[in-house]
Design a protein around this nucleic acid. Structure first.
Length: 103
DNA sequence: CGGTTGACCAAGT
DNA sequence: GACTTGGCCAACC
């Protein structure tokens, strides 16, 4: 990898490593970057300039298990997660089952 | 360079 | 369990 990457690009790199059927949290991504920029991670997802198919920002949810937001609508995000095999009950995801723990 | 804005988080009420 | 509060940090204006 190149020497320097801005904050956003590092988020996108991590995004690509999330396997199908798993999710991660804004918090986890920030931690992987040795940072507490939870909110900045959300901003990065929102402005994602890349192809959403290569950078699955819908697999990023909030640390509390809530869905979080989605540029194309929260409902669409839920549907997409469900279609990947993730179970959502009462608007929440069981992180113990579905969280992809980075390294 | 200060102020505002979020797809946030944790703790408290 | 819903709502408020204070804290966090990069991007943007």
């Amino acid at each position: 990898m190149p020497y320097k990457m801005n904050f956003n690009d590092r988020c996108y790199q991590i995004l690509k490593t999330i396997p199908l059927g798993k999710v991660t949290t804004y918090k986890s991504i920030a931690q992987k970057l040795n940072s507490k920029a939870y909110r900045a991670v959300g901003n990065a997802m929102n402005k994602n300039p890349h192809d959403p198919n290569l950078y699955p920002c819908h697999r990023v949810i909030s640390a509390s298990g809530n869905i979080g937001g989605y540029a194309h609508g929260t409902e669409a995000k839920k549907e997409r997660l469900k279609s990947e095999g993730i179970i959502i009950e009462k608007g929440k995801i069981d992180l113990n089952k579905f969280e992809f723990r980075i390294n």
